[in-house]
Amino acid sequence: MEKKEIISREKIEHLARLALIDLSEEEKVNISKQLNNILDYFQKLNELDTSNIKPTRHVIDGLKNVFREDIPGKSLTQEEALKNAREKQDGFFKAPRIIKE
């Protein structure tokens, strides 16, 4: 039986833009087939009626927002923070062009 296509080709291209991953043609074909198989399996959750169930976002009960006193502490130096960047200039990270040519 042909499985229902949940994610179309256009959808994959849309997701590629959202996720900022530039897939090759071959990858688009493979990924959309696999994603459809996996999503088809995820439909299993619809067997369960969860209309009166609260979502669990944090699994340990009782933990509330955690605050600390606003006291300056030790942190990375500018040099340490920049050390792993390939492109840097005048103490800044150097980014690719943001405004279109």
């Binding site: 994610i7 994959i12 590629a16 991953i21 990858e27 994603l35 690719p96």
Partner: peptide, 29 residues
């Protein structure tokens, strides 16, 4: 080549493996 999104998208395509991409796509969806 191109703007910041082109460079990031290319970097991420070259740098991430198949399973990681699969999971990012499904999660994004």
């Amino acid at each position: 080549k191109g703007d910041v999104y082109d460079v990031f998208s290319r970097t991420r395509n070259e740098g991430l493996g198949t399973e990681v991409k699969r999971r990012i796509f499904l999660g994004t969806y």
